[in-house]
Amino acid sequence: MPSIAPLHTAAPHEHDGRKGTPTTGRPHPHCLADIADQIGPRRPGAIYQNVDGRFEVLALVTDPADAAQLLRRDSARWAVIVRDTLRPDGQPFAVGSVWTTSDYLIRPARTAYAPAA
């Protein structure tokens, strides 16, 4: 009688097609460009505006565990900490919305820190 063993068995290092690596949960290298597109030009020091307000980027969090905790979403891969500059009492908060055509850059991010005086 022939064996009923499966004809194809996935190797332990193969993944299930999701955009992450199976052992680390970090984005696959091919996805890094997607993440950069999602973040857009939002780097520390940048100011951008959309229908929700005008925001100064205070920090960019690219560690998935930290981003997931900040946004309270297990699927988060990054987060941007911003402050609404149109509100005098604007407090920093985290956002995970992707950069879209309704967002526009007012001031680009700092490229380097100025030396201390």
Rank of each mutant, 00 (worst) to 15 (best):
N50P: 06
A5D: 15
Y104C: 05
P44E: 04
L86K: 14
F55G: 04
H30W: 03
D52P: 00
S102G: 00
A76R: 08
R73G: 00
W99G: 00
R83Q: 13
T101Y: 04
T23H: 06
G25A: 07
L58I: 15
H30L: 03
P88N: 10
I81H: 11
N50A: 10
A59Y: 09
G20P: 00
A59F: 09
C31F: 02
R18E: 05
F55N: 07
A94Q: 03
A109D: 01
W99P: 01
D66M: 11
A94V: 07
A67F: 07
H30F: 02
D37G: 00
D37F: 04
D16K: 13
V82R: 06
P12A: 07
P27W: 02
I35M: 10
V98H: 04
Q69M: 08
S75P: 00
D34C: 00
W99Q: 01
A67T: 15
S3Y: 09
R83N: 08
G96P: 03
I4F: 05
A112I: 11
G96D: 00
V98I: 08
S97I: 06
A76K: 09
P41D: 07
Y48W: 15
W99E: 00
A33F: 02
D89P: 02
R107I: 14
R87H: 11
H28Q: 04
D84V: 14
Y104M: 10
L60N: 03
Y113G: 08
S102E: 08
G96L: 01
R42N: 04
S97W: 05
A109T: 03
A11E: 13
P44Y: 02
R43M: 11
P29A: 05
Q69E: 09
L60S: 03
G90D: 08
G20C: 01
D52L: 14
I35S: 01
D34L: 01
A117E: 12
G40R: 11
H8A: 03
I39N: 05
Y48G: 03
P2A: 11
T85M: 14
H8E: 03
H28S: 00
A117Q: 12
P12Y: 02
A68T: 12
L7M: 12
R107W: 05
H8Q: 08
A112N: 05
P6M: 06
A116M: 14
W78V: 03
A36E: 12
I47S: 08
Q69R: 14
L71D: 05
V61S: 02
R26A: 02
T9G: 00
D103H: 14
D52N: 14
Q38T: 07
A5M: 14
A79P: 10
R110G: 01
G45F: 07
A114E: 15
Q69C: 02
D89R: 15
E14W: 15
A65W: 10
A10G: 03
I106Y: 01
R72M: 08
F93N: 01
W99L: 00
I47Y: 10
A114S: 13
A46K: 12
G40K: 11
R72C: 02
A117Y: 11
H15L: 06
Q91A: 12
D103Q: 05
D89N: 15
A117P: 15
E14R: 14
A79G: 06
